[in-house]
């Protein structure tokens, strides 16, 4: 896997990439359907043409049920809303009409965690990964960059389980080369290092890379692993690097309960090592600029450095 991370912001907006990718998929596969809940203007699909772009109105539970029914009739539906509504608001529908009834729909939840910024606490899901992880056979992506998003969208329509793609709307820091192919359950070693392992997902991969750079200046060589999918989790890869380093710190834009931290802790049970986390400390979200929220919830490279150093001390 080719790593192209250079710490500079990608000029591409995630939602524009969603719109473009779905448009291409529509042309390639006549079974593809896009469902939205009055948020096409946010998901980048507002210019979508044709009867396979379906606006369900502000009715997420109905939208997910329709997606499941479309699936049963042989279509390949993608359903989008903001993260809280794509998870909490429609959870029983995703769980039963989707997963339990074996209708492997794809759900896209935008504005995960602090990226909800000015929409505030009501719109700020710190629990969406926890909810989706609890669904048997579900596949949970915490999107890191544009190539990962494109690949996830392309593959999701043919994956066997309900697939949840949590992705911000705005720009990201590119980590992987364009055209990179990912496999659900296969993590990526973004940086090698012998002294500590940082397992980071989504927007926290950039923070982890910045932290690793700073730690190196203090003589601590930290490895960074991006799990790509938080479920299934590449436990084998994480255990291998945990064994090499003896110190593991997770970094996620999510409640420490039920997300990446929990998943990695599960994977490491029984291993003799030091473990720490950088995650939301089981509190509700709040409104504000993303930079403020990053500091407010300690989702920063500085905090990752602090936690690693404490464990190394």
């Amino acid at each position: 896997m080719e790593i192209v991370y250079n710490g500079e912001k990608d000029s591409r907006m995630f939602n524009a990439v969603i719109g473009g990718t779905i448009d291409a998929l529509m042309k390639e596969d006549e079974k593809v359907v896009w469902l939205d809940a009055d948020l096409m203007g946010c998901s980048g699909t507002a210019k979508g043409q044709g009867e396979r772009y379906i606006n369900c109105g502000i009715a997420e539970a109905n939208m997910i049920g329709i997606a499941a029914g479309l699936c049963a009739s042989g279509m390949k539906p993608y359903a989008h809303s903001f993260g809280p509504f794509a998870s909490r608001r429609s959870y029983d529908q995703v769980f039963l009409a989707g997963a339990y009834a074996k209708n492997p729909i794809t759900v896209i939840g935008t504005d995960p965690g602090i990226t909800a910024a000015f929409n505030g606490g009501t719109h700020m899901p710190f629990e969406d990964m926890a909810l989706y992880r609890a669904i048997p056979e579900a596949i949970v992506y915490d999107i890191t960059d544009v190539p990962m998003l494109v690949d996830a969208l392309r593959k999701a329509k043919d994956l066997p389980g309900v697939t949840y793609i949590r992705v911000p709307r705005k720009a990201s820091f590119q980590v992987y080369a364009d055209g990179t192919s990912f496999t659900p359950g296969k993590g990526a070693v973004v940086r090698e290092g012998k002294d500590a392992l940082i397992v980071a997902s989504g927007i926290m991969v950039h923070e982890a890379m910045q932290a690793a750079k700073a730690l190196a200046e203090d003589g601590i060589e930290a490895a960074v692993i991006d799990p790509v999918t938080v479920k299934p989790l590449d436990a084998e890869l994480i255990r291998e690097w945990a064994k090499k380093t003896g110190v593991v710190v997770t970094a996620e834009n999510h409640n420490k309960i039920g997300g990446l931290t929990s998943a990695v802790a599960d994977a490491l049970i029984g291993m003799p090592l030091k473990f720490g986390h950088v995650a939301v400390e089981d509190v509700f979200g709040e409104v504000g600029p993303q930079d403020y929220l990053r500091e407010r919830f300690d989702l920063t490279c500085d905090h990752i450095c602090r936690v690693v150093k404490e464990l190394k001390a």
């Binding site: 997910i64 329709i66 499941a68 029914g69 699936c71 049963a72 009739s73 042989g74 009834a101």
Partner: peptide
């Protein structure tokens, strides 16, 4: 109700 809608739409 919603899954039936989806099936009919499909």
């Amino acid at each position: 109700t919603s899954t039936a809608v989806g099936m009919a739409l499909g």
